[in-house]
Amino acid sequence: MKKICYKKLWKLLIDRDMKKKDLQKAAGISSASITKLGKNENVSTETLVKVCNSLNCDICDIVEIINDDTE
Rank of each mutant, 00 (worst) to 15 (best):
K2M: 09
K3E: 14
I4V: 14
C5S: 14
C5N: 15
Y6I: 02
K7M: 03
K7V: 04
K7C: 00
K7W: 03
K7G: 07
K8P: 02
L9F: 03
L9C: 09
K11I: 06
K11E: 15
I14W: 03
I14S: 15
D15V: 04
R16C: 07
D17E: 14
D17A: 14
D17R: 15
M18Q: 11
K20T: 07
K20E: 12
K21R: 14
K21Q: 13
D22L: 06
D22P: 06
D22G: 10
K25L: 13
K25H: 05
A27W: 02
A27D: 04
G28N: 10
G28W: 06
I29M: 04
I29A: 09
I29R: 07
I29L: 12
S30Q: 08
S31N: 14
A32E: 13
A32P: 00
I34K: 08
T35E: 12
L37N: 04
L37T: 08
G38S: 15
N40R: 03
N40S: 11
E41A: 11
E41N: 10
N42Q: 11
N42E: 12
V43Q: 05
S44C: 07
S44P: 03
T45F: 13
T45W: 10
T45S: 10
T45C: 00
E46F: 04
E46K: 12
T47A: 13
T47W: 02
L48A: 07
V49S: 07
V49H: 11
V51F: 01
C52D: 08
L55Y: 01
L55M: 05
N56M: 08
D58N: 13
C60Y: 12
D61G: 06
V63N: 02
V63M: 10
V63Q: 01
E64V: 01
E64L: 03
E64Q: 09
E64N: 05
I65N: 09
N67E: 15
N67G: 02
D68F: 01
D68S: 08
D68C: 01
D68I: 00
T70K: 07
E71F: 11
E71L: 11
E71Y: 11
E71G: 12
E71C: 03
